[in-house]
Nucleic acid binder design. Structure first.
Lengths: 336, 336
DNA sequence: TTGTAAGCGTTATCAG
DNA sequence: CTGATAACGCTTACAA
């Protein structure tokens, strides 16, 4: 391991000077010296020891990307293609801006706090569902953090989506295609949060057509292939509706599969609209009509926003909202 | 930030003693002292600064999980559900064994070497495709590393799969169901590696039935929805085969979708066998008959094996091979 | 059983 | 423009 000292003695200067040229502390050192030192750095293959830097500067340039472990769906986090797309954006942006990404699932708030202190994390991106205890604790300290796709209170910094509009667009499309009885399927609805908003959009659209939502048209189902397929089989029994609005493509795909198992076909018998427009929306047969969001871009936005907070706490924004749009494919049938 | 010193002075002992009880260096300190110190640690909310520890012990307990960035498929790494499942296993195991996971895509070998030194990484897990230059460089230094699902030389430590058997099982199943002309679709075949093995299995099975493989039955296609669907549309034109063996479920799903676009249905017109048995295998219609592997378990195995290398370089194994089996679902039709 | 002191590689302060 | 020197929080000989 070659250190600053090695470089210094190779060139015949003090460690301080080497440090200054490394950290771009220009002005403070002569051009020819910079030249010589850079050459030595190159030749010796010097790489800064970031642990040491973190120690002395109490800033690690490490961002924690955290998922709260829900026991019922162990590993589900990574399996969900939504998170893959999100991570892709987060990782790329962090890397380009000179940050490192430490990924971890956690059980408890204490876990998270330990992690934070263990590594002097510069910031935190939280994905998934967190009990509000986490936020009260996090808000009480000063490491910036931010939520993506959590079901969450307004006070917390986050990258949001036009969820209500999304719900509205998906359901309105079904209504325009002649459907009148439309089921709403998504993870259990929380008081605040994404799903609540999408549900409101669902209601908005129904209302616009003079319809009113009813309890037995709303189904709660956890994200996951097995459970959504099971729900699909269950829904195959009902004959009093013609369409389903699902709050995630992965759910929609499972539903289609379950319906199929029971001989109900999409879109001939039942029309389905999804949400997200992930790759899988084009892998199902029929391809899924869905509400599009740019998940990867959302990851980028999250990372950008967090870094803005870290580097310049003043002017950084607290919340941003990303747009949605409807993408028509093959899973909706026009009723004559 | 509360440090060892704070704990020490709170209890009225030296930092060394505190350090000893923290690091479980028992024997060296009296029971009642241990008691008092632990109490103080608890009360003050002490958390070890791992940067400092890494600095002094030149071991960080951080494992780098690395993907080589192939420009043509930016972000593809994360999108691929295979990697999601893999990561899930890796993360869980690392965490349980007290390691931290730093994820990063890299452009070049130099990038990787910098990362390694920057953080004193204790080990490396590589996923994806790497030029052999990487391996020669990595083998030349002494941080343990390991490959999962790369297309790779034998000398490198890795978690393998019964790829040849997998190819054999999938194709044999098609043969048993009466198919005689079977296409092979996968990413471009390299001289060594996973796909080569699967292809050998394909040949094995054909040979067993007195058939011989021919060049025009082998298709190369990069992993990705668009490209595999496009290939599906292309394959819809050929009428001289009845079945396809795809080396990944995600490919199989794309193919089915593309075939569908052109009015060729699975399994009525064409039978398809996939590989991996990811969640999506149950989301396609028809559900995919596929060669199963336990991807998450493979991630666990990889992490376990790497840690064994790190903590006990002697007895750790160099390579392990995980089993496969065929899972029959609905994408293969029996020819009368 | 406990304490002292040096040192890991870096940055920051201040003096030359 | 350059260089001592201290400090970051921790571990580890070695000493008491």
């Amino acid at each position: 391991m070659v250190t600053i000292k090695d470089v210094a003695s190779a060139v015949g200067v003090s460690p301080t000077t080497v440090s200054n040229v490394i950290r771009g502390n220009a002005g403070r050192v002569s051009p020819e010296m910079i030249e010589r030192i850079n050459k030595a750095i190159e030749e010796l293959g010097y790489t800064p020891n970031l642990s040491a830097r973190a120690l002395v500067s109490s800033s690690s340039h490490i961002i924690g990307v955290i998922n709260h472990l829900v026991p019922s769906e162990s590993g589900g986090f990574f399996q969900d293609p939504f998170h893959g797309a999100l991570l892709s954006g987060i990782e790329e942006t962090l890397r380009q801006k000179g940050y490192y990404m430490m990924m971890r699932t956690i059980d408890s708030c204490a876990d998270l706090m330990s992690l934070l202190n263990n590594w002097n994390l510069d910031g935190l991106i939280l994905t998934g569902i967190f009990p509000s205890e986490f936020f009260t604790q996090l808000l009480r300290q000063d490491t910036p953090f931010l939520l993506v796709d959590s079901y969450v209170l307004d006070e917390v910094p986050q990258v949001r989506l036009e969820d209500r509009t999304g719900g509205y667009l998906g359901v309105k499309h079904l209504l325009e295609m002649g459907h009148r009885r439309i089921l709403f399927c998504g993870p259990p609805i929380y008081e605040h949060g994404v799903l609540r908003e999408r549900y409101k959009g669902y209601c908005d659209a129904l209302q616009e057509y003079g319809l009113s939502p009813c309890r037995e048209d709303v189904y709660g189902v956890e994200i996951g292939v097995d459970r959504s397929a099971a729900l699909g089989r269950e829904l195959a029994k009902r004959r009093d509706y013609t369409a389903i609005f699902a709050t995630a493509d992965i759910l929609a795909a499972g539903l289609i599969s379950g319906l199929n198992d029971e001989g109900r076909h999409v879109p001939e018998d039942i029309s389905v609209v999804g949400f997200d427009d992930l790759n899988i929306a084009r892998l199902t047969s029929p391809q899924l009509t869905t509400v599009h969001q740019d998940v990867t871009l959302r990851g980028c936005a999250a990372a950008d926003m967090l870094i803005a907070h870290i580097e310049n706490k003043q002017e950084a924004v607290h919340t941003i909202t990303m747009p949605v749009r409807l993408v028509e494919r093959q899973s909706v049938k026009r009723l004559s």
